[in-house]
Simulated scan of single mutants.
Amino acid sequence: MDHLIHTAEHQQVAIGKDEREFFVQLGGRVAELRKRQGMTQAQLAETLEVSQQTVNAYESGQRRVPVSMLPTLAHTFGVNVEELIGSPSPRTARKRGPTPTLQRHMERISELPKQRQRAVVDVIEAMLQQHAR
């Protein structure tokens, strides 16, 4: 039996059972990854430039996550798109790199003027030296 699901444009379209299950599972992974990051639905909504209700609908599988949004979600959570959609790549066994929160801070720091970037690096280096003692 086909189910109705809302698209990002708020249209209802019939989808098959397998496709519905995919979006329910994807929504569950989005919710799990969001919670792992300590993010609220409202914070994720702000990142994605959608409403909190839309994030809730994605997470519950009531609304399809647009394909164009997958790279942004993956980047936000520090995973690759394959992991996000439930198809882990061989690369996933390796260390993923900085945590997404740290990665977001680094991106914000890179947008600062060079003098301010240097000041941030100086503080980080001082803290690391102090920790090494």
Rank of each mutant, 00 (worst) to 15 (best):
F77N: 01
F77P: 00
R63N: 06
M39T: 01
E49N: 12
M127E: 14
Q37E: 13
D2V: 10
L44R: 00
F23T: 02
N56G: 13
A119W: 10
R20C: 06
A74D: 04
Q25A: 15
L44D: 01
A93D: 11
Q62W: 05
A57I: 00
Q41G: 08
V13M: 07
G86N: 07
T40W: 04
Q62A: 15
H105F: 12
T47D: 02
G27R: 01
H3M: 12
M106R: 08
G78F: 01
V65M: 04
I15C: 13
T101Q: 12
T40V: 01
Q117S: 06
V30W: 03
V13H: 00
Q130K: 13
V123Y: 09
L70S: 03
A119I: 10
R94K: 09
H3T: 12
A126N: 05
G78Q: 09
E59A: 03
Q117R: 15
K95P: 07
P100K: 03
M127K: 11
L26V: 03
G97C: 07
G38R: 03
A132Y: 08
R118A: 12
E21S: 07
A74V: 03
G61T: 05
I5A: 08
L84Q: 01
T47S: 05
G16N: 13
G28R: 02
E19F: 08
V65Q: 02
I109C: 00
K17M: 11
E125R: 10
R104V: 01
D122V: 03
L84S: 02
E83T: 14
V67D: 09
H6M: 13
Q11K: 11
V81Y: 01
T40Y: 02
S89P: 05
Q43K: 04
M1W: 05
D18M: 05
Q103C: 09
Q25D: 15
V79D: 03
F22D: 08
Q62F: 05
Y58S: 02
R20K: 15
M127N: 04
L128N: 06
A8F: 05
R94P: 00
S110K: 10
D122Y: 04
V81P: 01
G97D: 10
S68D: 10
T99G: 14
R116L: 14
H75E: 12
G86H: 08
V13I: 14
M39A: 05
Q130R: 12
R133S: 14
I109M: 06
Q52M: 11
Q11M: 06
K114A: 15
H10N: 14
S110T: 07
V13R: 13
A119H: 13
R91Q: 14
K114E: 15
G61E: 04
L128E: 10
P90A: 09
H75I: 00
R63M: 06
H6R: 13
S68E: 12
R34I: 04
E82H: 13
E83C: 12
V67A: 09
D18N: 09
S89N: 10
Y58D: 04
A45Q: 05
R96N: 08
Q129T: 13
Q62V: 03
